[in-house]
Write a protein that binds this DNA or RNA. Structure first.
Lengths: 326, 326
DNA sequence: CTAGGTGCAAATAATTTGCAGAGGC
DNA sequence: GCCTCTGCAAATTATTTGCACCTAG
């Protein structure tokens, strides 16, 4: 959505247009950091000498009601304001030396927060998380790479990186499982799964390259979204040693488990974000995993059906496995 | 340490005793929640009509310098103060309806915070974490169980619970491994390990019961310290199936891995807390795990040594295992 | 006796509000 | 014309400070 349409969509009911307010809102949206009311007042004064502090405060409150602005409190004894246009919610790193602040988000932390709230029978709304300390620039004396630009693009970048890492992890797992598998049918299933992961991975990597072209410096931005759960959660160490004796049906079942885990993960977390390209990426990825999952389930059912029609073979297979599983 | 000694130990250099200040400090330390300067002023006024607001503010600043008080900011446009005597650092759940706040700590979150800071080249100091929302009492209309009493006791209780959960998890693992193990020597090692865990567990449970006797209502307090890492991290699902073919040396090595993991975990996290009974419990537990670990390592070395002295047997064992591991 | 500590009142600092006039619909 | 927005100045709220006086060491 374009800025103007975005503003119109958020205008509170029963409010009138006003050139003063428009000016304040526009100047505010043009800014990047976390402004105090006074910072904004100074900026406004450069364009219109007549606007009073009271109007700036009133407009800030209006923007908060409209959802354009968020009020943040860094413990300085006054508030700061940040706009939310193309700017997902986030937590803060705050340098106590230069008073600059840096943004990040961590799904892992958000999950833990929800768990704490649930354990204490608390209905959580917004959370405030600030790490106070010293930034790299203040510690080393050398200027840090500027953290400017569209946060929502960085968010999308990180979402894609996470999806790619997950896919790579799946690919590696299936590849190793295929290498280890002794049963020819089981191995073939793993090989096919690996091939499918490879294809999906290629799609994601293409999309990543396309995203990078939207902003020359996108890769230089530090990580915004921290999210480690997705890439490792599915495959436990040592599991591959169990893969060696796996047949085709079991291999398919393993694939189903993996894809289901992946789908749930991305659906669950995608739903947590507000509208943004990053959210979109998570939900699309979840959808693709679901589609793949359904495909695997159909294959599995087909396989079971076929084995039921040739009971001799199924019985033989069962007999052969019996002593090992006892 | 007793309150008086505690205060003396923290008195800033070059400061005089004063009856007014003593009164303010004592009234402050008697309180439980998070007071505003005005709350405290009102309380003080009940005991001494002459004390002025300025003195209360000055004394609060003095207490902060002395480390007796912490200044917290719930975004209300003014500060609140909490004392730190027998009161570990923590995060807050803040009810936006009744303005009450509840405390918790999560080692898992703290670890993630450190990781984020490290990834951004930020040297972290103190962190602020607030979950704003609605408390149970405000949502249901019924009064919640009062969250009063010594937080440091609750902290110790939770530390013990975590240690116990870890020990139970270890006991369960070794018991199952012993049940599954086919090699008689391997099984015996697991049985011995299980027995040791059982003993340690009994010690911890006794200590837990002793702790409960210090405060009748200790078990009724909601969880303060959230810490899930310890109990599950060591043993992955399916691992027990790998246990079946394990011999005595391998079983010992598995025990060493587990105890080492446990020791590192508790040492690492114990070091994160400030002085308290809870910290003590973590560090003692870490020490006990280390002692056990060293014992196991000695046993392992002895075993290897013995096997080296009877090379025929070792060679035989090796030959027998060769096809399985290829 | 002298460096803090204290009370009082005034100063600051951020933000809000009352009111009369200006301006959009 | 009505209802909202705006500027200005005054009010409010939380906190700090100047200064004269007090008190412990």
């Amino acid at each position: 959505m374009e800025p103007t349409a975005y503003l119109e969509s958020l205008r509170p009911a029963g409010s009138k247009r006003s050139s003063k307010r428009d000016l304040i809102v526009n100047v505010f949206l043009r800014q990047e950091g976390h402004l105090t009311a006074d910072d904004l007042f100074d900026l406004i004064r450069r364009e219109d000498q007549k606007i009073s502090r009271a109007t700036v405060y009133r407009t800030l409150q209006w923007m908060i009601d409209a959802g354009i602005a968020r009020k943040v409190d860094f413990g300085e004894g006054r508030f700061r304001f940040e706009h939310s246009y193309r700017h997902p919610r986030h937590f803060h790193l705050i340098c106590k030396t230069c008073n600059h602040s840096f943004e990040f988000l961590s799904s892992d932390i958000e999950v833990l927060l929800e768990e704490v709230a649930a354990a204490r029978n608390f209905t959580p709304g917004q959370s405030v998380l600030q790490i106070h300390g010293t930034c790299e620039a203040c510690r080393t004396g050398r200027p840090a790479p500027a953290e400017a630009g569209a946060t929502s693009l960085v968010f999308a970048r990180d979402a894609l990186r996470i999806a790619i890492a997950t896919e790579r992890s799946g690919l590696e797992f299936y590849t190793r499982a295929a290498r280890v598998a002794k049963d020819a049918r089981g191995r073939r299933v793993f090989e096919k799964l690996a091939e499918e992961e490879r294809e999906h991975l290629a799609t994601l990597e293409t999309r990543y390259r396309e995203l990078l072209q939207q902003d020359r410096q996108l890769e230089a931005h530090p990580t915004f979204l921290f999210f480690k759960g997705a890439a490792n959660g599915l495959f436990s160490a040592g599991a591959e040693q169990l893969m060696s004796g796996v047949n085709d049906r079991q291999a398919l079942m393993i694939g189903i488990r993996c894809e289901r885990g992946s789908h749930r993960f991305f659906k669950r977390y995608g739903e947590r974000f507000e509208d943004s390209e990053g959210k979109q990426i998570f939900l699309e990825f979840a959808d693709e995993e679901r589609a793949h999952l359904e495909l695997l389930i159909r294959e599995y059912r087909g396989l079971v059906e076929r084995q039921r029609r040739t009971p001799a073979r199924a019985a033989k297979r069962k007999t052969r496995r019996a002593p090992a599983s006892a």
